[in-house]
């Protein structure tokens, strides 16, 4: 739904379409680095306030007595054209931030799950989450020391991934590499979309 449309001067260009892509994975795996590598500015940061009841602040009377915590999300922007903008959100990888994930995943066209071969298990929660939601995702193995000693099919097996889920090697610090990861994700998401459309027709 759009709001306030009537106020817009006649003849003004329509507002662009915004697309959301998530970058998930464990702490220190390179999420912010990847967002920064492809974005047109350095990553920005927003915070959501969490209360015991979840995201947002329902009732702030007696704030002192409630345990509140903030979850920081780093994000960046890629302007594709006058009518298309992509936002990349680095999402906190811990289970206790489900509330934020739900909000972020809503309407996201896909996710990059970053993996570090030294601690592969860190990306299990992200993979479980996107599998459960049906959000298209790819796994990008970040090039920390030792990453090249693994074959991608070994990573795929270790993560118990669907054979259709792309696993790629990347260096989150390199713009070209980060771009390639995103292109892989978009092609995968497009394929899934087509497959789902066909399945719905049958």
């Amino acid at each position: 739904m759009d709001y306030g449309r009537s106020e817009r001067p006649a003849g003004a260009a329509p507002l662009p379409t915004a697309i959301k892509i998530l970058v998930a994975g464990g702490f220190g795996v390179g999420k912010t680095t990847l967002v920064g590598a492809v974005s047109e500015t350095r990553p920005l940061r927003t915070e959501e306030v969490l209360t015991e009841t979840g995201v947002g602040i329902d009732d702030l009377s007696g704030v002192e007595g409630k345990s509140t915590t903030t979850v920081a999300m780093d994000f960046g922007r890629i302007t594709i054209s006058d009518d298309l903008v992509v936002y990349l959100f680095g999402t906190p990888g811990q289970d206790r931030f489900w509330f934020v994930w739900d909000e972020l995943a809503l309407g996201a066209i896909g996710a990059v799950v970053l993996a570090d071969t030294r601690r592969l298990a860190d990306c299990f929660p992200s993979i479980d989450y996107f599998e459960g939601r049906g959000t298209p995702f790819v796994v990008a193995v970040n090039c920390f020391e030792g990453a090249r000693n693994y074959r991608l099919d070994e990573v795929q097996a270790a993560l118990d991934l669907d054979p259709g889920v792309p696993v790629v090697l990347c260096d989150a610090r390199e713009r070209e590499s980060a771009k390639e990861v995103l292109v892989t994700l978009l092609e995968h998401a497009m394929k899934l979309r087509e497959a789902r459309r066909r399945a719905a027709e049958d």
Binding site: D2, L84, L186, A189, R193, R197
Partner: peptide, 22 residues
Amino acid sequence: EVREPRATSAGLPDESVFEAVI
């Protein structure tokens, strides 16, 4: 004025958007 992100029934934008982003 606010424009909410476009949500399609399938939850994913149409092919032309994917191609434009790629």
